[in-house]
Amino acid sequence: MRNRCRAGMRSMMAMLFVLLPALAHAWGPSGHRMVARLAENQLDATSRAEVRRLLGILGANSLPEIANWADDMRSDPAQRELSRATSRLHFVNFTDSRCTYDEPRICANGQCVIAAIQRHAAMLGDRSATDRSRAEALRYLVHFVGDVHQPLHAGYRSDRGGNNHQVRFNGKGSNLHAIWDSPVLGSRRLRWNDYARLLERAPISDNTANPIDWAEQSCRISRDKGVYPQGRTIDKAYLDRMRPLAERQIRLAGKRLAKLLERTLD
């Protein structure tokens, strides 16, 4: 009987481990692929050629193919330790609603998405590093730039990026982070590649090159733009209000990722 109980507990823990990673996703797989596609299509010829060369080392042909690797590895038993070691690199927690970056307090030892972007950009641009190391840096960079543009990955509240902010959606319990993972963009009911083509029709201008600024802007969005609803029910009206904001963040992320890759590789 004891053995059966232990086996049952191990099974439950394994299930929990599989379920927990979903709490830390940003945009969902489609959103990350859109960011990658928008960036890829904006690269200059020199950067595009180097990106494709490095993608070949990873067995990939395009940036969207690697955009979700940093999340997907959480469900790979062989990469479980790496997933745990990098889990804090997907977000940054500001200390208050001023949304001001104070590195020693909120990114100690480089454990936040801002430092991760800076670190992997430096590795990608280091021509003395191995091609494999630079290719690994590329796939982290593509993902983390998407992460930092999701407002709930750069918040200041104590609710774990909205994971502990309980809401109801379609008559079922959920949390605000999960709503931003998929339903906000998913309410368009488009495949990600068609969605990316739609967003490309509305180019966006931006000259903000510092990941610190990107994170601070995302934090202010979570504070000012109605991301946190008045009540606890998520309805169609909320999704309709938030979707243009999310789409703008996707477009900004794509443009900024392209410029970052160009600065790093050229």
Rank of each mutant, 00 (worst) to 15 (best):
W192L: 04
T86K: 00
M34P: 05
S97F: 00
I204K: 03
L239W: 03
A202N: 10
V184S: 06
T46Q: 13
M13F: 12
K172G: 02
H143V: 07
N210T: 10
A24C: 06
A129D: 09
D76I: 00
R6P: 00
R256A: 06
A137M: 12
W214M: 07
D126E: 12
L38P: 05
E65Y: 03
L265Y: 08
T264H: 08
C5E: 15
G231S: 15
A45C: 03
D76L: 00
R232W: 06
M123N: 08
R119G: 06
A121T: 14
G8L: 13
T130N: 05
Q150Y: 02
R132L: 14
L261T: 11
G59I: 06
K172F: 09
W27G: 02
R189T: 06
R223W: 01
S174K: 04
Y140P: 01
H120P: 04
W192E: 06
L257H: 06
N207S: 15
I250G: 03
H177A: 14
R248I: 06
Q42V: 04
P229R: 08
Q217F: 01
V18R: 04
E65C: 07
W27F: 13
K236G: 09
A78C: 03
G146M: 10
R52N: 13
E103K: 12
Y228D: 01
F94N: 00
R134G: 04
T264R: 08
V227F: 02
I212Q: 05
E136H: 10
D213Y: 04
R223S: 00
I204H: 02
D131Q: 14
G171L: 12
R10N: 08
G8A: 12
L199S: 11
T95L: 09
W69Y: 09
I114H: 02
R248S: 14
G161C: 02
L239G: 05
W180I: 00
P203M: 12
R160S: 14
I221Y: 00
L20P: 01
M1Y: 07
L55M: 10
D72S: 12
L260C: 14
D126R: 05
D240T: 13
A253P: 09
F17Y: 10
A24F: 07
R33S: 09
H90A: 01
V184T: 01
L261Y: 11
D224H: 03
L16H: 11
I117P: 02
R251S: 15
D71I: 09
N3L: 14
N175Y: 04
V92H: 01
S187G: 05
R48V: 05
S187N: 07
I106S: 11
E136C: 03
A49W: 02
I117A: 11
Q249A: 10
